[in-house]
Design a protein around this nucleic acid. Structure first.
Lengths: 233, 233
DNA sequence: CGCTGCGTTGAGCTTCTTCAACGATCGTGG
DNA sequence: CCACGATCGTTGAAGAAGCTCAACGCAGCG
């Protein structure tokens, strides 16, 4: 598919006209990354930003001892690395291909010109950043105010919603990666899930999770720390 | 001081011309809040956003059992509540006056019109949101990958930097509030600070903290969890 | 003077992490 | 085709960090 056609499918550029997209197309750099490849590193100078075209990209922080915290998993159509662009700082995190991926790199200057010419683009970008800020706020809330079972319950419910409200959902990431997304480690996630199965809240089968007691999950997801009615044994 | 004059001092509106600001001034709603008063609540519909004119505003999340996590403390010139505006969602958190405060409320429509007319405004807003996103990413990193002593060390260093690199800094918030900002509780913060004093890293005297060993602090601030060379006794 | 808010300290406990071991699955190369 | 290694998920035991609950001192203020 041509770059122009692909740009059409990206919400961020939906406000642009055909000729505008054509203009952008010649500037965009088309790149592919194998699963596991680094796209940018924390502290690196950001001379532009990226948009996922195909595959998925993981944006994450990492501690000196190697533990990672996933900030975001991005799919087709979603931009990443824009923070560095507008704040004038360097990339605040690492990004790597979560699957074999294709991304567009949009150089700073090219984009700046487009924005000046098309305020709608800036508004789209504002909407994108706002939604992300919203998500980050929820993440902070979860990390600080909720225990792992709560966060996991919330994740399962949101996945169910995202997959059309189905009771049986499929995890599209490895459990260890889910742990990193929820701000914990694989062992704790495993134990927590096992406990939820014993509680009759869900059933678990490999990458599939079946919701048994949606109300119970909802209660758990919104619960404060130290929830006494989620027994540990 | 007139509203127009005050608008001039707000970075967000620095790109506007005199007549444009005058235009904005008639739309802006000028409000004052006593310390402790709620400005908006989580889930409330956001028909506009705010800018702090004087005083300080606290934006925070709260868990069912009352524990709060401060997301942000905003001072004069800083906007808040914009996330709801651009994402089209409701306010994602609570906001209350941290001190007696004066704020401007800018209704959605008025601002939208301004943005369409002045792309620079949108760019300013993008920069603001990006910086906040950056801060949130650091916060998530801290909560998930670092222990309290690390976060506190980081806070002290950043305050020192903000106060011109001084060795003796003054906390401009109650210690309990600092705990909430760092994602912990007053007791833990108190113990952690006491330990840092015993370590010879800082000296503490009421709201004043004196840096004794800046290198030690820096090392601590960037350290991973389970740091063995920060003894607990 | 007593009240209230704030900070501190102690004791006990819960949650989560660490460290270690083990089973299962999968892809690769012999 | 099987063996091997690698990755991943799970489980157990032990320990650490942080939280809860409670008590107390202190300062500011009505």
């Amino acid at each position: 598919m041509s770059i122009v056609k692909l740009l059409e499918t990206i919400p961020l550029f939906s406000g642009l006209s055909e000729p505008e997209r054509r203009e952008l197309a010649v500037i965009v750099r088309d790149r592919t990354f194998e699963r596991g490849r680094t796209i940018f590193t924390e502290g690196e100078e950001g001379n532009g930003f990226y948009v996922v075209v195909a595959g998925r990209v993981k944006v994450y922080k990492i501690s000196p001892d190697g533990k990672e915290q996933i900030l975001h998993l991005l799919g087709p159509g979603e931009p990443f690395g824009e923070v560095a662009l507008f704040s004038g700082r360097s990339f605040p995190a690492f990004a790597e291909a979560f699957e074999d991926s294709r991304v567009f790199f949009i150089p700073r200057e090219a984009f700046a010109a487009q924005v000046r010419a098309h305020p709608a683009l800036a508004l789209n970008m504002l909407a994108t950043l706002s939604i992300r800020l919203h998500q980050f706020a929820s993440m902070i809330e979860g990390l600080s105010l909720k225990e792992v079972s709560s966060r996991l319950a919330g994740y399962i419910l949101s996945e169910s919603f995202r997959q059309g409200g189905a009771a049986r959902i499929e995890l599209d990431l490895a459990k260890g990666q889910l742990a990193s997304l929820l701000g914990t480690i694989p062992e704790t996630l495993s134990r927590t899930l096992t406990r939820m199965v014993r509680q009759g809240l869900v059933r678990s089968d490999g990458p599939f999770i079946e919701i048994e007691d949606r109300e119970g999950l909802e209660q758990l997801a919104s619960a404060e720390r130290r929830l006494s009615d989620f027994p540990r044994e």
